[in-house]
Design a protein around this nucleic acid. Sequence first.
DNA 1: TATAGTGTTATCGG
DNA 2: ACCGATAACACTAT
Length: 265
Amino acid sequence: MPELPEVESARSVLERSALGRRIVAADDTDGWVCRPHPPGEIALALVGTELTAAHRRGKTLWCDTPGGPVLGIHLGMSGKIVIADADGREVDGGDHWEFGRQPGDFRFSRFSLDFADGGVLHLVDPRRLGRIRLDPPLDALGPDAALVTAAEFGERLGWSRAPVKARLLDQHVVAGIGNLLADEILWRAGLVPGRPVDGLTPAERRRLHRTVRSTVDDALHDGGVHTLPLVPHRRPGGRCPRDDAELCRATVGGRTTFWCPAHQR
DNA sequence: TATAGTGTTATCGG
DNA sequence: ACCGATAACACTAT
């Protein structure tokens, strides 16, 4: 289940295995995943063309077509991009963060593109929280969390009374931070997730920006959010890997949140 | 068996 | 208008 690093990995699958292949059919019949498009609308727009570039900002992916619409792809919580060859064998994608799915299992394919050579691109998404749409709105997304500058971050973080974690999870503020990444960032920055943003000192705000950047860089470089130090300890009874205190647990920003009572203030 | 969950969006109420 | 909480989506893991 993807956060920014896993979505970047899906983008590289698209770039490596989907670009420049002529599309001969598309299955867009899942009306929930493909909303608001009626069945057939996405297929009509894509058949006969090809994908020419794969982009990402935060957790949102999109592909260009020559002179045609942009194909927007969001993986949601359980989506992944899997490429199969003409014999149905998986040749790219699908090998990360999943619910024990076996290669070649396309029961939960919610959208697919058939290429002229017999290859197939699948959006495999058991929970149907992912989304496919033409010309997705991208303007509301904040800057990518791997690239955001201190000035942009400070401006978009704002000075409301909202819990700092709720602001980090808001994709309009910064794009790409999910629940695990947010807990890791606040743990590294030494901030309690429930702290109101308007109570942060200038030094704490600067430290938070630097920690966003370094944590996302680490996760990208090391192969995903699971490689971050706090993440394996985020469970009831888990202890802080820095000082061994039992982690606190609460709902913050609508999501289950863990933090260390010893070093997060 | 019951519950929680790595995401987003619409809607409701303060 | 801003902000936060909640439900919906549907399946898997504990």
